[in-house]
Design a protein around this nucleic acid. Sequence first.
DNA 1: TAGGGTTATCGTCAGATCGACGAGAAGACC
DNA 2: GGTCTTCTCGTCGATCTGACGATAACCCTA
Lengths: 225, 225
Amino acid sequence: MYSPGDFPPFAVTVDLVVLTVRSDALCALLVRRGEAPFRGRWALPGGFVRIAESVDDAAARELAEETGVSGLHLEQLGTYGEPRRDPRMRVVSVAYLALAPDLPVPVAGTDAAAASWVPVSEVSSLAFDHSVILGDGVERARAKLEYTPLGTAFCGREFTVAELRRVYEIVWGVSLDPRNFHRKVTGAEGFLTATGQTTARDGGRPAALYRRGDAAVLHPPLVRG
Amino acid sequence: MYSPGDFPPFAVTVDLVVLTVRSDALCALLVRRGEAPFRGRWALPGGFVRIAESVDDAAARELAEETGVSGLHLEQLGTYGEPRRDPRMRVVSVAYLALAPDLPVPVAGTDAAAASWVPVSEVSSLAFDHSVILGDGVERARAKLEYTPLGTAFCGREFTVAELRRVYEIVWGVSLDPRNFHRKVTGAEGFLTATGQTTARDGGRPAALYRRGDAAVLHPPLVRG
DNA sequence: TAGGGTTATCGTCAGATCGACGAGAAGACC
DNA sequence: GGTCTTCTCGTCGATCTGACGATAACCCTA
């Protein structure tokens, strides 16, 4: 037993939940399928893992192919392996979560008909079990904002406290007190590093610019609601 | 493209990190391998996913086969898919974490030479990448105790606050103040439900018996150290 | 039966933290 | 200059935390 050729053959794919915040909404990167099954339906970007690459590398490769950007935060979300999730064959898919700043319009991938950012509140019935995966990804992202500094992944390299607060408000769907948010965010060890610069925004007083700090977890965590 | 027969074939397995607390140590369920490669080395229990079962079902099946117990808490830990992690063929393994009460000595599995509980502090160099997986599992378990009521999964159906505290102390490797622990644990909404009964233990005052509550997350969370 | 040992449970108290909100700072615009 | 906007710093009471005293309820021994 337990020798090559003596095991059930599976196809292994990666699926990507790529989230960003743009125009006051949490958006996911979706592609429109050009092939059967689910032809014409929205789906998560993804593809087969190659025989000589690691699963993590496959996710990074697909992400770069779909967004044209590399170096984004990318973490494993979970693995989905129901027997009938793909009607053609037995596929096990490893899902990844990526948080991106407001990127330019995604490049139309090589094999995907069209790619675009869709507000997650308007997404309905994706191909395969991708609706479930997307839901899990959004939930994970919401939880991550509480106890990690990953909200900064939605912002550019330099950002203001108000921009970061806007990210939290949109992802969590709540409104936060600007003064308390400012106090907690600047008080959490290693969350932000000041650049010394300020923005000249229209309207009010210029805001200080920050970069992401080097902390991996937040002490104390930010709380929702 | 994208048709059966036109994709790289993978073997898909599940690996189990089964943890328990016994004799003042956090222990993992390990099996000694009876076949090459890594013959004679300790490894995590696990096995191939069958072609007609879901990955989650495969994990539950293997867990029942190895421990003789079903109904334990079982959650996906992560997927490990480096190309060379198995020297014979391309294997992608989905790891699961299970938290168990102090079970009787595990049954020697059908295909594993021997199975036993090993304190995680004494584990060294498991087969394949199982040391990494075990480390991830222990870290996940430690984090889960903070914000979920899953510490109760290490206890029996009814338990005292002191028994639960002992679990936390052993898993986290710290010592906790009994009075503050009691206050926080009984104060957290839905963590514990009193049975009204008490134990007749040797020594001190009898302790109240509790069962696991119905909360999924802890408010407020318990903090380490 | 009294006293000591042990463990469980409740209280107290100072310091830290949180949410709600006032107030000043620093710009744009009229 | 006056007014608007947004950013940033402070204040205050309620709440929570950790350290630790005190009491309760058992067992054991003399």
